[in-house]
Computed example of a mutant assay.
Amino acid sequence: MTFATLADFAATLTDLPPPDAASTAAATDRDAQLTKPPGALGRLEELAIWYAGWRGDARPRLDRPQVVIFAGNHGVVAQGISAFPAAVTAQMVANFHAGGAAINQLARQFGADLSVVALDLDRPTQDFTQGPAMTDADCAAALSAGWQAVDPLADLLVVGEMGIGNTTTAAALACALRGGDPADWVGRGTGLDDAGVARKAQVVAAGLARNPVAGDPLQALRCLGGRELAAMTGAIARARASRIPVLLDGFICTAAAAVLETARPGALDHCVAGHVSQEPGHARLLAALGQTPLLSLDLRLGEGSGAALAIGILQGAIACHSGMATFAEAGVSGA
Rank of each mutant, 00 (worst) to 15 (best):
M1F: 07
L6Y: 13
A7W: 14
A11N: 06
D15Q: 10
P17E: 10
P18D: 05
P18R: 11
P18M: 00
P19W: 02
T28K: 14
D29W: 10
R30A: 01
D31S: 14
A32H: 12
T35V: 14
P38K: 01
G39Y: 05
A40N: 02
A40S: 10
G42N: 05
E46L: 14
I49W: 02
W50C: 09
W54C: 13
P60I: 06
P60M: 08
P60R: 02
D63T: 15
R64Y: 00
Q66N: 01
V68F: 14
A71N: 12
N73R: 12
N73P: 08
V77I: 07
A78G: 06
A83G: 03
F84G: 08
A86H: 11
A87I: 11
V88M: 15
T89E: 13
T89D: 11
V93M: 10
N95V: 00
I103D: 10
I103P: 09
I103R: 06
N104Y: 01
Q105M: 06
L106N: 00
A112W: 05
A112G: 04
D113F: 01
L114N: 09
V116T: 06
A118N: 08
A118G: 07
L121V: 02
D122S: 09
Q126V: 15
T129M: 05
Q130G: 14
Q130F: 14
G131P: 07
A133I: 01
T135V: 11
A141K: 09
A142W: 15
S144G: 05
G146A: 03
G146K: 01
L157G: 04
G163C: 13
I164A: 03
I164S: 03
G165V: 13
N166S: 09
N166P: 09
C175Y: 14
R178A: 09
P182K: 08
A183W: 15
V186T: 02
G191K: 07
D194Y: 00
K200V: 15
A206D: 07
L208I: 12
A209F: 08
P212Q: 08
V213Q: 00
L218M: 12
Q219S: 13
Q219W: 08
L221K: 13
L221M: 15
C223W: 03
E228K: 03
A230K: 12
A231K: 00
M232Y: 07
A241P: 13
R243M: 08
V246K: 03
L247W: 09
G250L: 08
I252M: 13
T254W: 01
T254H: 00
V259M: 03
V259T: 10
L260Q: 02
P265E: 07
G266T: 06
L268N: 04
V272L: 15
G274N: 02
H275G: 13
H275C: 10
P280H: 10
A283T: 02
R284E: 06
L286Y: 13
A288H: 03
Q291H: 09
Q291T: 10
L294F: 12
D298R: 15
E303H: 02
G304M: 01
S305T: 07
A308Y: 07
A310S: 15
L314D: 04
L314A: 04
Q315C: 10
H321L: 04
H321E: 09
S322D: 08
G323V: 00
A325S: 11
T326C: 05
T326V: 15
F327N: 01
A328N: 05
G331M: 15
V332Q: 14
S333N: 00
S333A: 08
A335I: 04
